[in-house]
Design a protein around this nucleic acid. Structure first.
Lengths: 139, 139
DNA sequence: TTGCGTGCAAAGGTTTTGCATGGCA
DNA sequence: TGCCATGCAAAACCTTTGCACGCAA
């Protein structure tokens, strides 16, 4: 049902599970396993990730900026409920788990009839550090 | 301030303005102008679109699924102060002026130190009509 | 043994970049 | 005339695909 159990799959899955809360792109997985001394083929990573997505074990995100897709181990339903903040200056991605923000989805659905898809939505702007940097530069 | 006025830029801008309510990908613009008998270079389209985005005249979207970016004329509205909802199904763009949503920016700044840029931020999901359509299809 | 999994290299699609030429102001 | 804009081709990316070989079951 789930296919063969191989060295490569064990390694990829283990890294994903140990990275809960982060998003990993294929390149990061490749690099990590290479540095670890257990390199895995590029197509193996892509193919296995796609398979995990089909099985619902992993979630696939498109964070825009032409960066391609990234993946995250599905830890439960609350995965649907958080927002992403992306700093357009330094590129860092902030993963926000916050009750207040979680109300937004409900509000938008009830008052505007719109169902937000959190896997596709990213709030863009400036992180604290970059905002401070910009303010300084302006003074 | 806004650069030179050229045949190519006039054509691209005109097509964007006549396509309000839709999103266009670079390929569509290239093809349209080619069919029209006024072909424009690929890099010209990419470079000018990027410039329009910087000027806030056009919005850039990443609708995921590895399709690349697409663009939409900003309709001349002041979009600094409200949120945008983009239906990933039908492509319609909804401008939302809502006190409740406006609090979000303040909350995110105060509690997460993050300054949201409304010209770049879009909430993706399903509009009421498309959500209804999907529900029907599932039954 | 059987057939799925792997890895390399090549191909595909989108976007960016270098550079010489062209055209607006 | 001085820059900026254009367009081609090449390069840069990310991802998919074909195919021979390897390995789990």
């Amino acid at each position: 049902m789930e296919g063969y159990r191989t060295r490569q799959r064990e390694l990829i899955l283990e890294y994903l599970q140990n990275s809960q809360g982060h998003h990993l792109c294929p390149e990061e997985i490749l690099e990590y396993l290479k540095d670890k001394g257990s390199p895995v083929g590029r197509s193996t990573v892509y193919r296995f990730l796609e398979r995990l997505v089909e099985q619902g074990k992993v979630r696939k995100y498109y964070l825009g900026e032409g960066q391609g897709a990234c993946y995250q181990y599905a830890q439960g339903q609350d995965c649907q409920e958080h927002f992403h903040l992306k700093c357009v200056e330094c590129g860092s991605l902030i993963h926000v788990q916050c009750d207040y923000l979680n109300q937004i989805s409900r509000h938008v659905l009830e008052h505007h009839g719109f169902t937000i898809d959190h896997t596709k939505t990213v709030l863009y702007g400036l992180c604290a550090q970059c905002a401070a940097g910009k303010k300084e530069a302006a003074d």
